[in-house]
């Protein structure tokens, strides 16, 4: 908390005296520092959380590692800065982090008024509710008069107000600064329901004192396209983030995995050749080396691998691919071609 305030204070001071960004400014400063600073969640299982040894893992964390791998050929050259929802955009605006990969919803106002860009959507989500089973509630429409715990400074807080207004229901909102405080208050019985993105509900339920006592209601009340954010104005840096994610998607589509990426270099498939840099100079065009995608896949894997490991069947969350399946399998994840 205090740390966040201090960082905001420093950030504000810095933004007062900072001079304008030039082309490739972020990439150059990252290279100069020798590591990437990545704004991450303060702790959300499957998306961004340090383990017992202090190693950060998660889907959002993997994206930062992939960016670091593309630049340095080393996925450990990332410094993770945990940020509460209400501090995250200030930290990015002020330059304290190079990229914010922290399950943040892309919206028009954030894109146009906060001076941010959302280059890609790495997780399509929607907002849901969790309640105690013993309340006997089976639909969000039955929540009239309920107390609801939510995290402040989020789209969740706004959707909640919209949903209850649209359905002409009353509720009492109890807003907390961090996801941790919010869930603890719900778990302690302060609220009847807890609301956040559906992925977050499954992740937080694992932390409940008795996870089986809680159910997630079927309604999804909003669209939550979650993705990394970068500062508006440094287009080259936005391109790098966009293409790292797209490389991971294309790799999955083309069957390039962490295990077979070295063999795939000899592939004759022109799409794979362009992706892995054995043909064309796509990497150089975004200020990296031509084997940038090889580095990403070698160290982090393709999108499917990262998904399964962190939030899918290989994880405790067991979230289905659903909307996040590739477009070829009926999902929304669609890798833009490298050509």
């Amino acid at each position: 908390m205090k740390k966040a305030l201090v960082s905001i204070a420093f950030g504000l001071t810095a933004s007062l005296f900072a001079t304008g960004a030039s082309a490739q400014a972020t990439l150059n400063s990252v290279k100069q520092k020798g590591f990437l600073t990545c704004g991450s969640n303060t702790g959300l299982a499957g998306f961004g959380q340090p383990d017992a040894q202090g190693n950060w893992t998660g889907l959002d964390v993997d994206l930062c590692r992939a960016i670091a791998a593309a630049i340095f050929d080393d996925p450990t050259k990332v410094r993770f800065i945990p940020l509460a929802a209400k501090d995250r955009f200030t930290a990015l605006q002020s330059g304290e982090v190079d990229v914010l990969s922290r399950n943040s919803t892309a919206t028009m106002s954030r894109d146009t008024q906060l001076g941010l860009d959302f280059p890609v959507i790495n997780y399509f989500d929607g907002q849901g509710f969790m309640v105690r089973k013993k309340l006997g509630v089976s639909s969000a429409k039955e929540l009239n008069g309920a107390s609801i715990c939510t995290q402040q400074g989020t789209t969740t807080e706004l959707n909640l107000a919209d949903y209850f207004r649209a359905n002409n229901m009353k509720y009492e909102v109890v807003a907390f600064a961090t996801s941790d405080e919010t869930f603890k208050a719900y778990d302690a019985g302060r609220c009847d329901a807890f609301t956040t993105d559906a992925s977050g509900l499954y992740a937080e339920r694992l932390r409940a004192s008795a996870p089986d006592d809680h159910i997630v209601l079927p309604e999804i009340i909003s669209k939550e396209p979650l993705g990394p954010a970068v500062r508006h104005g440094d287009n080259n840096w936005g391109d790098i983030v966009r293409w790292v994610h797209n490389a991971m998607l294309n790799a999955e589509e083309l069957g390039v995995t962490k295990a077979n990426v070295e063999q795939m270099k000899t592939s004759t498939n022109p799409e794979i050749k362009r992706l892995l840099g054995t043909e064309g100079k796509f990497g150089e065009a975004i200020g990296l080396t031509n084997d940038w995608a090889v580095r990403v896949i070698k160290h982090v894997g393709n999108y499917g691998e990262s998904f399964e490991k962190n939030v899918g069947e290989g994880s405790r969350l067991k979230i289905k691919r659903g909307q996040n399946a590739l477009w070829t399998k009926g999902g929304l994840q669609y890798g833009i071609p490298v050509r």
Binding site: A85, K86, R88, Q113, A175, A177
Partner: peptide, 28 residues
Amino acid sequence: AVAIGYPDLVQVFMGTVLNQTGQAIEVV
């Protein structure tokens, strides 16, 4: 109060309003 969810000035204004508008300097 920000730590325990009481909606005082800092919680509401420097928390939610700052984040929803992104206008850190003005709000602070």
